[in-house]
Amino acid sequence: MQKRVLIDSLQFSLTIDRLCHQLIEHYSNFENTAIIGVQPRGTQLAERIVKRLHEIQPDSKFKFGKLDITFYRDDFRQKGKPLTANETAIDFSIENSNVVLVDDVLYTGRTIRSALDAILDFGRPTAVELLVLIDRRMHRNLPIEANYIGKEIDSITTEKVKVEWKETEGKDKVWIINE
């Protein structure tokens, strides 16, 4: 097994800062905007972004939610066992509001396809944008692209991208692993 660091702790915080500033540039005070993390790993990124946004711009008015997409996946029954669901916590309507979906890694685009399906069950948003920490470009199965990208990488299918968090693994780091 080979692994190498894609993003180290310093770069990690710079990237988060840049993504936050890009969001502020686009949404200014986040009126009528919801930031929604895709469970389970997108939520961790979303929580970090939300925390940083509050530090940079304390009067930000966005709402924050978590979206579980398990029941909307298209590979149900193909994995040989059922997929275990996570909590969905969206206690507001997204009807006519802007939504920023947040996930850690964009790969085939199928997760985001499911998330788009799932989000429509909470109302009709005005617009949906996508923020990801890592974009594994060249592997898309569907015509889905991110609006805000932490880092674009070229990888091969046998490689895996792993995001580690200060809160759970002790350090913010992104690895690329070849098994």
Binding site: D68, F71, Y72, R73, F76, N86, T88, L120, F122
Partner: peptide, 16 residues
């Protein structure tokens, strides 16, 4: 999890 789904405005998921 399904009880949460049943509280939503659209009480349906496409799983099956």
């Amino acid at each position: 999890n399904f009880k949460d789904v049943l509280q939503r405005p659209i009480k349906k998921v496409p799983s099956l």
